[in-house]
Nucleic acid binder design. Structure first.
Lengths: 241, 241
DNA sequence: GCAAATCAGTACGGTAGCGTACAAAATCGC
DNA sequence: GCGATTTTGTACGCTACCGTACTGATTTGC
């Protein structure tokens, strides 16, 4: 494991794992644990949010839908976070879509159970507050990065972020999908990815990108990855392993 | 007033104005009301936040500082909002800078008074929760917009956002400053601004941009302005005037 | 095992925006 | 009012990325 690598255990979502025992038991009893297939839409824009999702493996993507049918990723949610953060703020719809990016196992809780839990006990509220702060930092850095950095660097950042959120070194992602996430042409992704492959930093076959040399990948990206990672570590100290 | 135009009264910050009388009196007693000069830095990255600021007139800008000394605006705070939103989440530092963009009058409250207020009473917490949700929507749309829209459109959006936050139609902004905010060259701003001026949509002399035809300006921008405005209006219903 | 579908490689002209530079115009300090 | 400073106008070659399109490679479905 690289020194800067933050990885989930694949056993439990971080927010849930950090709950004290009694709160954990209480919240877990409200959750359903389900497999989530790629491209499942878990939140539609401006539609009452049905569930909050806590990924254990796999990850979700928060996506802004543009009028011209364009789509741009705003942020990524993995084992460290939750979809439906609006619930924390007492809001039950959002203007962005949330879609499964990498299939995995997730716990989900209904809107009503979530609102009841948040209204009656403070443990989860405290953790979600920390997560909200991190989320704001993340997407703030995303605004800046999308404004000024090249596709090469943004691709590397995106691979690192996803690598942090899956188990293993294989990311089930097509160039087409990456293009949507980075808001660039599919062809641009192919060019950037080919460059990384030629440098033996990644390898890929159809729909599967393998991270070969994470250290070099970190060197190939912009500062934004490090910023984003640091904002997690400030607030979400990783349990020793 | 244009049909889509949301403007402050210049008398009070919206978050404070929406407080019930007793809470308003209590919070106001904790605030200091001060003039704020352009370019005053109110929050430094990773430094303990001293105050939360509630603009009454003028506005603040949240800016990401890049390692190469580049700067990119993440979002804008005016009469509808507050700097130091982290306090809501129990966090006392942030990774972005907050700087005065347009001089004005603001109320400020110390970290300790703010934390005490948030911990002991719920009225302000409720409003800040709504504002946090709006803020997240705003910067999410900013991620998308910076990713895909042209400088022309982004400039128009930025002028509209600022116009919504100042009293009158004169925005005291130089091209140089706008360039930082949009993360583009100063020369690019001049070209885009000149085009708007030729169309009689704006006028400017050194450091002062005047909005002449707001309706056309709205037509010249991308959907992102409308999205951002809508997210305010959903949560912050404007008092009738 | 073969057809259909998906995914990846590559190319080419077009253009938005960059870095840089320099000069003109407006404003400020005194 | 005059020099110094700030702000704006404009130009030029350059690069990254776009839109589009076509081909080839791999996987999937049956």
């Amino acid at each position: 494991m690289s020194h800067t690598h933050v990885r989930g255990t694949g056993q439990e979502n971080w927010l849930l794992a950090m709950l004290p025992d009694d709160a954990y038991a209480r919240v877990l009893a409200l959750c359903e644990t389900i497999p989530m297939a790629t491209k499942t839409i878990v939140i539609e824009p401006d539609v009452l949010i049905e569930y909050a999702h806590f990924p254990i493996t796999g990850c979700l993507s928060v996506v802004a839908l543009m009028k011209d049918r364009g789509r741009v990723e705003v942020g990524t949610v993995g084992w460290e976070g939750m979809s439906g953060l609006s619930f924390l703020h007492g809001v039950e719809t959002t203007r962005t879509q949330c879609i499964t990016q990498v299939a995995g196992t997730m716990r989900r809780i209904t809107r009503q159970d979530m609102m009841t839990e948040l209204g009656s006990h403070g443990e989860l509220v405290g953790l979600l507050n920390l997560y909200a702060d991190v989320w704001i930092s993340q997407i703030g850095q995303g605004v800046a990065c999308n404004g000024v950095h090249s596709i090469d660097k943004r691709l590397a950042r995106w691979l690192l972020i996803t690598h942090d959120r899956v188990i293993g070194d294989v990311l089930p992602l097509t160039h087409e999908f990456l293009a949507v996430m980075l808001a660039v042409r599919r062809a641009s992704v192919t060019v950037a990815a080919t460059a990384l492959q030629n440098r033996r930093i990644i390898d890929y076959t159809h729909g599967k990108i393998t991270v070969l040399d994470r250290e070099q990948l970190e060197k190939a990206t912009c500062e934004c990855y490090e910023m984003q990672r640091a904002s997690y570590e400030k607030l979400l100290p990783v349990t020793p392993d």
